[in-house]
């Protein structure tokens, strides 16, 4: 048995002094796709922010192990270099920082950390254009500032492009489908699948079942009241689409 990619054990934590995650457990092995579904305000994003080490989020108890290492001891950038990637729910605009040099720095930071040779500008721009084309992001877009003036769909496609360039071992997609039309959802789904290997793990956080038509989960978890309350296969997602979350919310209340 190989080491799991991610192991979360009895996690408690939150933000701004409010405990939101209450006894959360999850194990993701190499190559597995897990979906976490749950109602608004359940704290799904709190979980992804804790995993990525966002400063204002805290962990009061519990353990998170990533590829056998203590994730909570790593800085934000170390987590990324170890192979963790978060496709953000609301990617921030960064005026004046253009996508191309930013992503080149990011990729080379990761390569250097892993003892690989840095990629030069020519090679990088070629790679970026190629991957951009698959996601319908033209070279004009890639010269622009990060997310500035991007539509919801464009911003989410740019997140997917970054995943394609950085090739993480575990990617968390935090509502990669919110603010995105059906065509963009398909492009994102295909884009995510294209950069997966049989070792890549995925954690898909979503309200809706639709994205899961493109990224088919091995496990579907219902998340409510700060922990997983039910686990099933992809059929559970379809069932939730029909019945909603009220049953689980009531249970918690």
């Amino acid at each position: 048995m190989t080491t799991p990619l991610l192991e979360i054990e009895d996690l408690y934590g939150g933000v701004a002094g409010k405990e939101i995650i209450k006894g959360f457990n999850l194990t993701i092995n190499e190559g597995e796709v897990h979906a976490i579904m749950g109602p608004n305000g359940a704290g799904k994003s709190t979980l992804s922010n804790i995993l990525c080490g966002k400063p204002e989020y805290y962990v009061s108890s519990g353990k998170i192990t990533f590829k056998g290492k203590d994730l909570l001891k790593m800085s934000v950038e170390e987590r990324a270099r170890e192979g963790l990637f978060l496709s953000m729910q609301k990617p921030v605009e960064i005026p004046g920082v253009s996508i191309t040099p930013f992503l080149k720095h990011a990729l080379n930071s990761i390569r250097t950390y892993r003892g690989e040779k840095e990629m030069d500008t020519v090679e990088f721009v070629k790679l970026l254009r190629e991957e951009g084309r698959k996601l319908n992001l033209g070279s004009d877009m890639l010269k622009r500032s990060i997310n500035v003036g991007f539509s919801g769909g464009e911003a989410k496609r740019l997140e997917t492009l970054q995943m394609a360039i950085l090739r993480p071992d575990l990617a968390i997609l935090d509502e990669a489908d919110s603010g995105v039309d059906i065509d963009a959802m398909r492009i994102i789904g295909e884009g995510v699948n294209a950069c997966r290997t049989d070792k890549t793990g995925l954690l898909v956080i979503t309200h809706y079942q639709r994205l899961l038509n493109y990224i088919v989960p091995d496990y579907v978890h219902v998340y409510a009241g700060g922990k997983i309350v039910k686990t099933g296969n992809k059929d559970l997602a379809e069932e939730l689409e029909r019945t909603g979350y009220s049953e689980f919310v009531k249970e918690q209340a």
Binding site: A80, V92, A106, Q162
Partner: peptide, 11 residues
Amino acid sequence: QLFYMKSRGLD
């Protein structure tokens, strides 16, 4: 912005 950039591996 700083968090976003670091979350992609930047120093």
